[in-house]
């Protein structure tokens, strides 16, 4: 395929799934808006008023980045995991792309881009909801956007890989329920790792989402538990590793071709 033809194919994949995401907005955007509003209400307004300041900001401002990331991670992941799984397992419409000249990297890039669209979209919705509960502090908007996009990309790639390997609905629900959610909750959404006992503080540093949440939080409050470059480095390394894995699986057809 020429570069232009690859662009057309990429655009087709993105356009089709983006339309689907928008068409079913009560399923794609509303749940995160409602859930995050409850988090802000309970942990921010009710409990936060008794906790006081964390890392120099109000508790609700401290938890906003983590709650945004919670929504971004789960939505970006589930978007690609569900699309890949249902299109290969039920409608088998994934064959429409597999029989075409679309190269594997274009296929991965297309589906991951729609995961980014959904992840960033949901992240922005949750940020807007947070405005109902607090005045947002923003230290560096560029870092916020960078972490939003890269985190969405990372978990879209994760969802892609999971969707390729899954051979039942359990296969695409196990990772979000038993891996992602615990990692996000234990990654410092509601607390600073510096406030933990030394053992648990050290354990937390083995959690990749800890670095993501901290880098994202740095964009808001200008301070974090780990240096910004370390967070960015961990995130970029993971994106690269997941991208290569997704591309390799697609090229070999593992889980997609029989």
């Amino acid at each position: 395929m020429t570069l232009y033809e690859e662009w057309v194919s990429f655009y087709t994949i993105v356009r089709k799934d983006a339309q689907r995401i928008l068409k079913i907005w009560p399923q794609t955007f509303m749940p995160s808006a409602v859930t995050s509003a409850l988090y802000f209400l309970i942990f921010g307004a009710f409990l936060g008023s008794r906790i006081g300041e964390v890392n120099g900001v109000s508790y609700i401002m401290f938890v906003v980045p983590g709650i945004v990331m919670l929504a971004v991670v789960t939505n970006a992941f589930s978007n690609t995991a569900t699309v890949i799984f249902t299109s290969k397992f039920f409608s088998r419409s994934i064959d429409e792309i597999l029989v075409s000249p679309t190269p594997p990297w274009v296929m991965v890039a297309g589906f991951v881009t729609t995961g980014i669209v959904r992840g960033v979209g949901v992240g922005l919705v949750v940020l807007v909801v947070s405005l109902l509960f607090t005045h947002l502090v923003i230290s560096n908007a560029l870092i916020i956007l960078l972490f939003l996009v890269l985190t969405s990309a990372l978990f879209s790639l994760g969802g892609f890989i999971n969707g390729v390997y899954a051979d039942s609905f359990d296969g695409i629900s196990i990772v979000p329920t038993f891996v992602l959610t615990p990692l996000v909750y234990l990654g410092g959404v509601f607390y600073s790792a510096n406030s933990l006992p030394s053992f648990w503080g050290a354990v937390t540093k083995f959690n990749p989402i800890f670095y993501i949440i901290n880098g994202f939080r740095y964009g808001f409050i200008g301070t974090a538990d780990v240096p910004l470059l370390v967070s960015l480095g961990v995130l970029l390394a993971l994106v690269l590793a997941f991208a290569v894995t997704a591309w390799y699986l697609t090229k070999k057809g593992l889980g997609l071709r029989q």
């Binding site: 395929m1 020429t2 232009y4 033809e5 690859e6 057309v8 194919s9 655009y11 087709t12 994949i13 356009r15 089709k16 429409e96 792309i97 075409s100 000249p101 679309t102």
Partner: peptide
């Protein structure tokens, strides 16, 4: 998906 979209999207995967 709509009938027309199914056909046109397929063309897209071929770079058309």
């Amino acid at each position: 998906e709509k009938v027309i979209d199914i056909v046109v999207n397929q063309a897209g995967y071929y770079g058309i």
